[in-house]
């Protein structure tokens, strides 16, 4: 137990999730900052349920026990918005009623004060994913690859403590997929974020390079 206290990253301590009394996930794992833990399994095995648990929006139909920590702080009982778990889904899910810049500004933490400072941060975040100058655009006018990059920039802009990736590359075509993988993992390493990746694509797991856990099946 004590060793945990001195180490940063994401720690899942005897996490068990059950539906109607049937256990679907049981897991104890540590993910160091910048490292990736890949959870693999067939559809319906409960991969996304695990992400929902860590993110704090588990459907009340499930029961869960165990604890989750980020950087020594227990998050198990926190509201989702207090956990600061950045999420990427397989769809970019850019808010359609905001501009590209609006999406990023919405994500920036409140602590970044002042219009100018926030705009600057937003522009830098766009630059960081190679999309400088697109801040006024309507998300609907972007290409698939651009949308994925904006989604990444948005989650990073929110200064998360960890990244939860729910098959984030599965809807991209092959060329884009490789590019995005590289970008996402590079950014995670750069920011020192522990990453929990859920996928059924072995190539994702290989690219991530971290531990692999198989569940279900």
């Amino acid at each position: 137990m004590n060793s945990r206290l001195t180490e940063a990253g994401l720690f899942l301590d005897r996490v068990t999730i059950a539906l109607d009394g049937r256990e679907i996930v049981t897991l104890t794992r540590r993910v160091a900052p910048g490292a990736v833990l890949t959870v693999m399994g067939p559809s319906g095995a409960g991969k996304s349920t695990l992400l929902a648990y860590v993110g704090g929006f588990l459907d009340p139909a499930f029961t869960a026990s165990g604890r989750a920590y980020v950087d020594d702080v227990e998050i198990t009982a926190l509201k989702p918005e207090a956990r600061h778990m950045g999420i990427l889904f397989q769809d970019p899910l850019l808010f359609p009623h905001m501009s590209v810049g609006g999406n990023l500004m919405f994500a920036l933490p409140q602590e970044v004060r002042g219009r100018r400072a926030r705009r600057e941060r937003m522009c830098r975040a766009l630059e960081g994913v190679g999309l400088a100058g697109l801040e006024e655009r309507d998300p609907a006018t972007l290409s698939g690859g651009q949308k994925a990059r904006v989604a990444l920039a948005r989650v990073l802009a929110s200064a998360p403590r960890a990244l939860l990736l729910d098959e984030p590359f599965s809807k991209l075509d092959a060329a884009l997929r490789a590019q995005m993988r590289e970008l996402v993992f590079a950014k995670a390493r750069e920011s020192g974020l522990p990453v929990l990746l859920v996928t059924h694509d072995v190539a994702d797991a290989q690219a991530a390079g971290g531990d692999i856990v198989e569940i279900g099946g």
Binding site: A52, G55, G56, F57, K79, P80, E81, A82, R83, H84, M85, G86, I87, F89, D91, L93, F95, P96, H97, F106, A107, P109, R154, V155, S158, P160, L164
Partner: peptide, 29 residues
């Protein structure tokens, strides 16, 4: 409504009422 928008916004650190007012309602206009 795609609930993942809400989860995403929560991941961005937004409280429930802000998610409701800034994401859900505008998208449901």
């Amino acid at each position: 409504f795609d609930r993942r928008y809400d989860q995403l916004a929560a991941g961005l650190g937004k409280a429930a009422w802000r998610r409701f007012l800034l994401i859900r309602l505008p998208m449901m206009t």
